[in-house]
Design a protein around this nucleic acid. Structure first.
Lengths: 122, 122
DNA sequence: CAGGATCCTTTACGATACTG
DNA sequence: CAGTATCGTAAAGGATCCTG
């Protein structure tokens, strides 16, 4: 009985850790959350729009991260028929399932600032 | 009018990006979510317990990440009066505020597996 | 405009061995 | 048991320049 409980708990942990690893690997790096968050706000943005909105990112990182996100079906990429060509990036329906996570991430960060500013410790 | 709206939106974005950066920097690295998740499940674990539960981590990373987390008041460290000494790590009340975030992270990872296995694409 | 190619620096991480 | 010290590798990220 006890042994079984431990085994179950262990496997539950394994599942959680695997899931967290998956999410982290897909959203790894310094910029993906910023890109996704920006695309969730204002849908349909050009490469340059993103470059301007996301403070500090360069063209190399932006294009690389966008490719990663596109590969995982989190953002869509549409080449417009203009001259010179422009590209529109947008969040996909699937990518939008990350909204709660990103909201939590931002919320916690804001609360953190408050807890550091507001009181002394903690 | 229009200009003001844009400015507001921009500053809202800046706040979000700052918040996300804060959270990411505090929870950076490969292991912090795993450590926190493990401590949230079973409270009060020893160094070796964590080493066993968290698959793949080594002593160096574990001790370093635990120090980071302790500095940010997310976990507590208690040296027990045993011989040889043992140490108990636990999640703090403040660290527990990360539960929703970690749950979301794990949930999304699980859903992701499902969407990859279940159907072909997306 | 959108991005690829190149080069370079920094950091993260891991393995191993050692200590109170 | 609970770490620290040392060493080495790999990956991430940034700056700059170039192209269709």
């Amino acid at each position: 009985m006890k042994k079984k409980a431990v085994i179950n708990n262990t496997s539950v942990c394994q599942v959680r850790m695997q899931a967290i690893s998956d999410t982290m690997s897909i959203l790894s790096g310094k910029w993906k959350f910023h890109i996704l968050g920006t695309l969730i706000e204002g849908n349909k943005l050009g490469f340059m729009d993103l470059l301007r909105e996301i403070d500090g990112i360069g063209t190399k990182m932006l294009s690389k991260e966008l490719q990663d996100l596109e590969m995982n079906h989190l953002v869509s990429r549409t080449v417009m028929n203009t001259k010179p060509i422009t590209v529109e990036y947008a969040i996909t329906e699937y990518g939008a399932t990350l909204s709660p996570l990103i909201r939590e991430l931002a919320k916690w960060g804001i609360d953190y600032r408050q807890s550091v500013h507001g009181s002394k410790g903690v």
